[in-house]
Design a protein around this nucleic acid. Sequence first.
DNA 1: TGCGGTTGTCATTCC
DNA 2: GGGGAATGACAACCG
Length: 675
Amino acid sequence: MSVDGPRTSVFTFESAVHSHHVLRSLDKLRQKGILCDLKVEVESRSFRAHSSVLASCSDYFYTRLANHSRPNLTVSLPVEVTVEGFEALLQFAYTAKLHFTKENILEIHRCAKLLGFHNLDKACFEFLIPKLSDGGTTAQEVKQNNENQSSHEKSQAACGNNIPTGDQNSDTGKDNVPQDAETPCATPSTDCPPDVSRDKEMQLDLSPLHTKSTSYHIGAGQEQFCLQNCGPQLPSASVARAELCPFLSMSGTGDNEKLHSATAGCGGDILAMEEELAMDVHCVSTEPSTDKDLNIPNITEGHFDQHERDLIPPADCRHLCPLNTTEARNVLDSIANAGILSDIGTNQVFDTTEQAFSDLAPKDGVAERSTVEREVAEHLAKGFWPNLSSTLTEQLPLDSIEHSAAGNSSDFHWLKHLDLGAAPDDCPFLRDLSSNGGQMSGGDSLSKEDTGDSSCISPINSRENSECESDVDSVQCDTNGQIQEVDLPFPVEQISSMTRRAFLQMLKQQRLTPEQLEFVQDVRRRSKNRVAAQRCRKRKIDCIYRLEGDIKKLMSEKEKLMQDRNQLRLSMEELRQNLSGLRQNLSMDTSPQSEQLQALTRYVSSDCHTSVLLTPMASPSLAGPDQEAQANTCLDAFLSDSVAEDAAALDSSIAFLQDSVQTAVTQPSAPELTE
DNA sequence: TGCGGTTGTCATTCC
DNA sequence: GGGGAATGACAACCG
C-alpha cells in the first residue's frame, strides 16, 4: 500500500527537550569560558557569560547589549546589584534553577527586579519572602518593600522596561488570595507545612525552558514541601482532581471554540503539546529525574506544581489548542469513565493511555493503513499521549476514538480540524474520519481508483446497508431506494472514486439505461461537489485564521513601535535638558572659547540638527556633509584655541555632548542605567 | 423555540 | 465546448 502521489501533507515535529539541552550546553560553555562574549563586573568580581543569554533573560541586559556588537564587552552593573544577588540570577539564567536561602532571598529579589529578570514572578517572592523571614514579614509588607524599592530603584536606575511592581490589591485582607490576572500571588497549599522558615537552601525550578512548570523544591535530603502557587486562573486552594490532570486542567472557553486555529494559529503545533504534557506528567510522575533535588509529591496528596500558563498571559495560540476545549474534556471524561484516571496518583497516571486505547479500540480490528499513515498517526497520537505504546500501531487512536465508549465521534471531531497541510481527504491521518468502520482497504492508488476502493466514501456508500435513523438518513434511504430502483450492476462506491477515464469506460461497458446513467452521473456530481465544498470551507477557515494571526502580529509590532517611539522621545527630552543646562553654564562665561562652545551646543541642540542626526534617511537634504563639517570645524576651532586648564573641563563637556548625541542616535530606547 | 454551527446540495463561474 | 474545480446560497439537521 502506498500513499498517493498528490498528497503533500506537512507534519511538524517539535522536540520537548531540545531547548533544555541547549540551555545546559550553554551553561557548560559558560563554566568553561567558551564563547563567552561578555564580562559582567559586579562589585569587585567579574563573571563571564554569553550576552545573548543574559539579554534574553533580563530587561537590563537587553537594553545594554541589544545595540552593541562589540566582542568581549564589559558591563559594569550598578552598585545596587550585589554579587550575592547576581550570582544566583546568573545561575538561574543558565539553569532555570534559582538557589536561595532566607538570608539572600531579599537580595536576589531586589537584584532580579533591578535587572528585570524574566520568569521570576513576583508571586514567588511574595510568598517566599514572608515565609523565609522570621515570621514578622507579611506578603503585604513585602509588597510595600517592593514598592519602596521600586521607587528608589527607578530613581537611580532606569533599566527595566517592564519590571513588575507591587500590585494594587495589597489591602484585601487576605494577602495571598489572587485577585486578578495582573496580580498573581502565592498561596500556601493546605497540604504544605505551615512553617518553612528554616535555614534551608531552596531551589526554584523553572526548568526546562524557564517555562511551563514552576515548582519549588527543597534541597536534597531535606524536608520536602510543596507550594501551591495559585495563579490567576486558580481561584481556589482546593484543587479538584480533574485539575491535576494536564488535560482536564485546560480550560475551555466554549463548545465552539476556534478549533481549527489549532493549526492555523499554532502552525500545526500538535506536537508542541507534547512538551506541555510532558511537563504536566513530570509533575505527577514518580519517574526519577536527572535532578537530584527533584522530588515530586504524590498527586493524591493534593500537591501540584504551578503551571506557568496560570501566571503568564495566554499565548496567542494557547486558547486555540484543540485540547483546550470542551471536546478535550469530553475525551478525558470518556477516558476517565473507562477507568483510565482511576489510578491517578498511583504511578500509573499516563501509563494507562495504552490501556485507554485498548479499551476504546474496536474489538473487531481496524482497517489497514499504510506504514506512513501509521507512523504519522502514532507520532501525532504521541503528541497527545506521550506514553502511547508502540503497540498502538495496530490500533490507531483515531480508530479508537471513533469507537470510543461514548460512541460519539463528535467528541473527537476537533481532530478533523487539525491542519496537516492538506485537505481532509488528502490527509492520511484524518482520511477515515468520515467513513464508518474504516472501509478503506489496501491496494495501490491505481487499483484504488479503478476499483472504487477509495478513501472518499460517500455517506451513500457507508450507510448503504444501514437503517434510516434520521432525516439525513432518510435522504440516504431515498438514494438507496433509487439505487435499488436503477439496480446498478456495480457498486455505488465506485461512482465517485473512479477517475473520469475509468468512469466513462465503465459506463461504456455496462450499457446503462438512461435512468441508470442519470442516477450515476448525479451521484458522481454530488459526491465531487461535496468534497469540493468541504475543501472550500476548509480553505476559507484557514484564510480567516491566517488573517487573524496576521492581525495579531501587526498589533504586536505596532505596540512595539509605539514603545520605541516613547523611549526615543524620553531620550530626546533628556538630551535637550542636558544641553540646555550646559548652555546656561556656559552663558556665564564670556571667553571666546565659551562663545564657540555655546554656538556648538545651540547647533547640536537645535531640532533641525537633532532631526538630522536621528533621521538622516528621512531628510537627506539636511544630512549632508555640510552640517558635520560645520560641527567638526566648530570643535576644531574650539579645541585649538582653548587654554589648557579650560580645555580639560570643556573637553569633558564636549565628550558628554557627543556621547549623549551618540546615545540618542544609536541607542534611543536604552537609557543608561549607570548615568 | 430560537440560534448558531455543520453538512449536503444546487447553481454559477472560472480555468 | 465540455469537464472539473471553486464558491456562494440555501436548506436541513443537530446540540
